[in-house]
């Protein structure tokens, strides 16, 4: 069974066709990219997959479950996590709390447990905190557990946001422009980080990215869209030499 199967997905906003007849299949464990010029509909695809929009037509299936009608938090519990183009951490919560709250769908206790402070509450809270600390330690951010996100550098905030996404134990991680706004030295770090995550966490990664160094050095399969329609797909090598892509996305000159 495919991890993610998108079939003939179309999304209209009034008269605008944001995504047109889009199909994709991910078996699991891939590291793929979705690229295209500004306004091509890339983020719309991610918003559809994560349940923010309901598709006009077409279907999205995650591990065999059709996500039509599901709320984003339900889709997340199926094993899809994402980050945002502009970092969206909870800024008045510590890094540790950010990661604890992200385990909301598998807290394993009810409101009554929380109010009565039952044994189950104590056990589960301890487990949640332990999981969060382990994740932070694994990602080398243990020291930052009690920091508030605004006090961290942009690059570190990105990393925290990725850690927060990972804390939902995803099978599919959607990264929406992870390199946006990062200085070039941090981009090198980011490439290493994504590679490492792909290796260490048993998951598939699908990213939107404008920086070709990131896409070309990481991804196995690239899909290019323009005005909502797929214009090309293939390996980095294919895409690099595809004249349609060069024309639509990279301009008339070769890279």
């Amino acid at each position: 069974m495919a991890l993610l199967e998108i079939k003939d997905l179309t999304q209209r906003f009034g008269g605008l066709i944001a995504v047109n007849d889009f199909s994709v299949t991910m078996e699991g464990r891939e590291l793929n990219a979705l690229i295209g010029p500004n306004g091509a509909g890339k983020t719309t695809v991610f918003n559809l997959v994560s349940g923010f929009y309901q598709p006009t037509t077409g279907s999205i299936t995650i591990n065999g479950v059709d996500t039509r009608g599901m709320k984003p938090h339900q889709v997340t519990s199926l094993g899809v996590a994402r980050t945002f183009q502009n970092i969206r951490l909870w800024n008045d919560m510590t890094v540790l709390d950010n990661i604890r709250v992200s385990q909301h769908y598998r807290l394993g206790y009810s409101l009554a447990d929380a109010l009565l402070r039952t044994r189950r509450y104590a056990d589960r809270e301890a487990a949640i905190e332990r999981t969060a600390m382990e994740l932070l330690e694994f990602m080398g951010m243990k020291d930052l557990a009690n920091e508030f996100p605004p006090n961290l550098s942009y690059g570190i905030q990105r990393k925290v946001e990725i850690a927060r996404a990972l804390s939902t134990k995803p099978k599919l991680l959607l990264l929406d422009e992870p390199a946006a706004g990062l200085p070039s030295t941090d981009v090198v770090e980011l490439i290493k980080l994504i590679e490492w995550i792909h290796k260490e966490f048993d998951l598939a990664i699908w990213m939107i990215e404008h920086q070709m160094t990131v896409v070309m050095s990481l991804c196995q399969w690239i899909k290019v869209i323009d005005f909502g329609a797929t214009i090309a797909e293939g390996t980095p090598e294919d895409i690099r030499n595809n004249p349609t892509v060069i024309k639509a996305y990279l301009g008339d000159e070769a890279i």
Binding site: P72, T76, F84, V101, Q103, H104, A114
Partner: peptide, 24 residues
């Protein structure tokens, strides 16, 4: 409780709360 902190997550960024599995 981590449960109740979901309320604060809604305050600070509702979109992020929903996507990070909080039933807003």
């Amino acid at each position: 409780s981590t449960y109740g902190k979901g309320v604060m997550a809604i305050h600070q960024d509702e979109v992020a709360a929903e996507i990070m599995s909080v039933n807003t």
